[in-house]
C-alpha cells in the first residue's frame, strides 16, 4: 500500500512544524526519515500515521486521503510504533502483541484463529516467541524493542511507521531491529522509520528523506543524501565514508559549524 504526503504542512499550536513536505513510501521499500533534533521527523511520522491533522496539503494511504478514512480503516491499513514505546500495565509479551489485533476485532467478538495466527507470525518474525510469557516491563531494552515491534507487526498492515525504533539500543540489537524492518519491506510492506543512526540508515534503507527545519532538505539514495554538503548544512557534522559489503558506510565523525553553505 502506498503512503504519500503532498505539500504537507502541520502546525503544533501556533508554530508551523512541517511545511511543504512531499513524501512517498511504496510497498517493498524501507524509507528512513532522518534529520537533526527538532527538525520535525516525529511530527512527520505522526502526521503520516494520521495522528496529527494536516494544516495544508494532505496525506494519502492506498490512494485515499487520510481525512476521508475512518480511524478504524486507517488502523487496519497502517501500523504505527510510537517513540519510546511505553506500556501502562505489566502485560506479558503475548498479550502486548495481541493488542495489535484490536483494529481487526468485531465490536463484541473475541480473538479468532486468524488473529492467533497473526500474533504467532508476528512474534516469530520479531524473534520473541521464547519471551511470550515474560512480562514486558521486566525485559531488557533489546527484548522490549522487539516485543513492541512484534505488536506493530501483528496489525499485518501494508504500511509500517516506526518512530525511532532504535532509541537506546546497543549496536547488536539495533542491527536486529534494522534487519527486521528490512525484512518487512521485502515482504511487501511500505516501511518508514525515523532514525538518528546515519550509519544504519545508509546501510539498510532504500531511500533517505532528510528533514531540516520542517522541510525536506534532501531525498534519494543514501550516498546522495548523506553527501558532505548536506551533512554539514543540516547536522553540522563531517563524516568518514567508505563502502562495506556493497553498501555505503557513513560514519559521522567531527563537528563543523552548522549553516546553509557547506565549508
Amino acid at each position: 500500500m502506498v503512503l504519500t504526503a503532498e505539500r504537507l504542512a502541520v502546525d503544533l499550536g501556533k508554530r508551523r512544524v512541517l511545511d511543504g513536505v512531499d513524501f512517498t513510501a511504496i510497498p517493498g521499500e524501507l524509507v528512513a526519515v532522518i534529520g537533526p533534533n527538532g527538525a520535525g521527523k516525529s511530527t512527520l511520522a505522526r502526521a503520516l500515521a494520521g495522528l496529527l491533522p494536516a494544516s495544508a496539503g494532505r496525506v494519502t494511504l492506498g490512494g485515499a486521503d487520510l481525512a476521508t478514512l475512518s480511524p478504524a480503516a486507517q488502523a487496519k491499513a497502517r501500523a504505527y510504533l510510537p517513540q519510546g514505546a511505553t506500556l501502562a500495565w505489566p502485560l506479558t509479551v503475548a498479550r502486548l502483541v495481541a493488542l495489535g489485533r484490536l483494529p481487526h476485532l468485531a465490536p463484541l467478538g473475541s480473538i479468532g484463529d486468524t488473529d492467533r495466527a497473526a500474533i504467532e507470525a508476528a512474534m516469530a518474525r520479531a524473534d520473541v516467541l521464547a519471551l511470550r510469557d515474560r512480562v514486558v516491563t521486566q525485559l531488557s531494552g533489546g527484548e522490549r524493542a522487539r516485543a513492541f515491534l512484534a505488536r506493530a507487526l501483528a496489525v499485518e498492515a501494508g504500511v509500517l511507521i516506526a518512530d525511532e525504533p532504535l532509541a537506546a539500543l546497543d549496536p547488536g540489537h539495533a542491527l536486529d531491529v534494522m534487519a527486521l524492518l528490512r525484512a518487512e519491506a521485502e515482504r511487501g510492506v511500505a516501511a518508514v522509520a525515523v532514525l538518528h543512526e546515519l550509519t544504519l540508515a545508509a546501510r539498510f534503507a532504500d531511500r533517505l528523506v532528510l528533514i531540516d527545519r520542517g522541510r525536506v532538505a534532501a531525498e534519494g539514495v543514501p550516498a546522495d543524501v548523506l553527501a558532505d554538503a548536506t551533512l554539514a548544512a543540516s547536522y553540522g557534522v563531517t563524516a568518514w565514508r567508505g563502502e562495506a559489503c556493497g553498501a555505503p558506510l557513513i560514519v559521522p565523525f567531527a563537528r563543523v559549524s552548522r549553516g546553509r553553505t557547506p565549508p
Binding site: L51, P71, A88, L99, L102
Partner: peptide
C-alpha cells in the same frame, strides 16, 4: 478494548483506531 489500546499511550491507542 479501548482501554487496552490506551495501555500503549494515547498515540498508540489512536493508531489502533481508538
Amino acid at each position: 478494548r479501548a482501554l487496552d489500546g490506551l495501555a500503549l499511550g494515547e498515540d498508540g491507542a489512536r493508531a489502533l483506531g481508538v
